[in-house]
Design a protein around this nucleic acid. Structure first.
Length: 587
RNA sequence: GGCCUCGUAGUACAAUGGAUAGUAUAAGGGCCUCCGAAGCCCCAGAUCCAGGUUCGAUUCCUGGCGAGGCCA
């Protein structure tokens, strides 16, 4: 390859061994002559030579010894710009234009678990969950493409005081209503009772304060809160009628979640339920005591002291012997490792849990657990609105089902206005609206670096122009249209001859795809792929506007451009699939 | 109060310490008798402030100012 020949040349010239880390390679900026740039500065110190001297020697050597790769060079201010032989690009094109696995790696024998989504069963999914779900799903696909075996998992938070709140509210106010009798989606139905609880609770607290109680006291003594706490105790005791209600209401929620998961294409290989895992980790507390990693306070609560690591003291078991979140998380982390023998355990969780996840990993390390090093928090930023944060109290939370619905109807509207698929039957249309609407939404949420807080602008999210999913889909559909219409088939012979700039630009960009896949996996960052496919589509569109494929100057050029179109389509389809986005043959 | 993120055109996003800081939108001007105009071309516009390290800083360090998060 280009890089390998550079390393070999350097080693031969200066009689020492170099690696790819010893120097920097970039794509040459468009304003300079050349395709491939080696930055000399990092070599200056070790070789004790002037940048231009190294550049000249290296440039000469490369052209002399690797004429199949390099044909010319120039040096500008310490940058060695090399012109890559057109034959190199031609053979790259020939090798990959029809390879649907281009850029993907063979299995590497490593297994990774990606835990994502992880909802509570007391309210429906919202925009933040969508970022989480798209991110988790996409990272799983990106890791698969890089040779990992991936287990997608989900921990459902199906128990606790917040779950009991919607149960109590249903008991008190529903009069036996169900999702079926009201025609409401199950998760929304249950979520409505969670809201109802909070309304009633607020009223009761206000009444108690009006009757002269202090705020703290009022919050504790509100009848609906006391009933909820009793219900939690009954649940823990396994009281039959409470268990029954709990199962029924969670069942409604799961039915609703399944509808949403289906519509957005999310799936899991393994689902954990907190009701099964919340007692995990008890024995670990004992081990921690034995190893003197934990210590007991006078009230018999158990703690770990992390002040030496710059954190604080953290409770791992309450004085009444009940466990806390972190303890179950340790237990589950160990269980995942034992069940699946995973090499890495990725948690897709919002950045408000950064501290919690740091503590989790640190405790696992201190306990000497075999999986401690493999725990990785894929922390993502909040989704904010142009008006600021989403707040459930102010009713500004964007519901997942609503936004999906809006994307679908917008894609329908655009499609109808353009009127290009009037011959589609209703099923084909429905599929197309899904492809475009979901494509727009997934692309919008994935194109930003996951770590960063992002702004959700409703007007921009339904825009289908520019840096969007539909732009990339359109480019793909247009290529397919050309390939369908062209009279001569693509033949198997490698093309040759000089490349026009537009032609070369597309191939040069396509060459970067494997590197983009690697980077996306290394950073666990789908935005690398989103940026890449957009860029490729853009470069192809420029090429296409300038050069005719069907009416090329000659048969050789026609074959060349057909292959360029085919390669582009393959890479776009492959890259988009890693984002969970389908590409239509027509749109 | 302690700890952790983040400050880039009007707006939203890019840039392993590298060349004149990219892209999209919104504003202005062009391009369909020819492979799909959900497209292409042209034109403008930005690194919060002050120091430091470096041949070179949007990037690394220190201190401000501003936004967000977590822990009591």
């Amino acid at each position: 390859s280009l890089q390998k020949s550079t390393i070999e040349s350097l080693s031969a010239l200066y009689n020492q061994s170099f690696t790819e880390k010893d120097f920097q390679i970039n794509q040459t900026k468009p304003e300079f002559e050349g395709d491939y740039t080696v930055v000399m500065f990092s070599l200056v110190k070790s070789l004790k030579l002037a940048p231009d001297a190294i550049g000249n020697q290296l440039g000469e050597h490369l052209i002399k010894n690797y004429p199949q790769f390099f044909t010319a060079y120039n040096i500008i201010k310490g940058f060695l710009n090399l012109t890559v032989a057109d034959a190199y690009w031609q053979s790259l094109l020939q090798k990959n234009y029809n390879d649907i696995c281009y850029g993907k790696k063979a299995m590497n024998g490593k297994k990774v678990m990606v835990e994502y989504a992880s909802p509570n069963t007391n309210k429906p999914l919202h925009l933040g969950h969508l970022r989480n779900i798209f991110l988790g799903w996409s990272v799983a696909e990106i890791l698969k493409a890089n040779g990992y075996e991936v287990v997608k998992s989900c921990i459902v938070n199906d128990r606790g005081i917040h779950i009991c709140k919607s149960m109590i509210a249903w008991q008190l106010f529903a009069n036996g209503a169900t999702p079926q009798t009201t025609g409401t989606k199950g998760d929304h139905f249950v979520g409505d009772y969670y809201v109802k609880f909070n309304d009633v609770y607020k009223e009761q607290v206000a009444d108690l304060i009006a009757a002269g109680k202090m705020k703290d006291t009022a919050e504790k003594e509100a009848p609906i809160m006391k009933a909820t706490q009793q219900m939690l105790l009954d649940w823990e005791d396994g009281k039959p009628e409470v268990m029954e209600l709990w199962k029924t209401m969670n069942g409604w929620v799961y039915e609703g979640f399944d509808v949403t998961y289906n519509s957005i294409g999310a799936d899991f290989d393994k689902v954990y339920y907190e009701s099964n895992t919340y007692l995990l980790g008890k024995d670990i507390v004992q081990q921690g005591m034995d190893k003197k990693v934990f210590y007991q306070k006078d009230d018999s609560s158990i703690w770990i002291d992390l002040t030496a690591d710059g954190l604080d003291e953290k409770i791992v078991q309450r004085s009444d012997g009940t466990s806390v979140y972190i303890t179950q998380d340790i237990g589950l982390a160990l269980q995942k490792y034992e069940q699946y023998k995973i090499d890495q355990s990725i948690y897709v969780i919002g950045n408000e849990q950064n501290y919690h996840m740091k503590v989790l990993k640190l405790i696992c390390e201190k306990l000497g657990m075999p999986n401690a090093e493999n725990i990785h928090h894929l922390s993502y930023g909040m989704v904010e609105l142009t008006s600021g944060k989403m707040k459930s109290r102010e009713g500004t939370v964007v519901d997942a089902d609503d936004i999906v619905e809006e994307m679908l109807s917008t894609s329908q509207q655009h499609t109808e206005e353009l009127g290009k698929v009037k011959d589609f039957n209703p099923d084909e249309l429905k599929t197309l609206y899904n492809t475009i609407g979901l494509g727009a939404m997934k692309f919008y949420l994935l194109r930003v670096d996951p770590k960063k807080t992002m702004v959700f602008n409703p007007a921009e999210s339904i825009d289908f122009h520019g840096f969007t999913g539909p732009f990339v889909q359109y480019t793909y559909a247009r290529i397919q249209s050309i390939l369908r219409k062209v009279d001569t088939p693509i033949n198997a012979y490698e093309t040759s001859g000089e490349l026009f700039k537009g032609e070369k630009d597309v191939i040069v960009c396509a060459e970067q795809y494997p590197a983009a896949l690697e980077q996306a996996a290394a950073e666990q960052n789908p935005s690398v792929i989103a940026n890449y496919v957009f860029n490729l589509a853009k470069i192809f569109n420029s090429f296409y506007a300038e050069h005719s494929i069907a009416n090329a100057e000659n048969e050789e050029k026609k074959q060349l451009r057909l292959k360029i179109a085919s390669l582009t389509a393959n890479v776009l389809k492959s890259g988009m699939s890693l984002l969970g986005i389908a590409v239509p043959e027509r749109m």
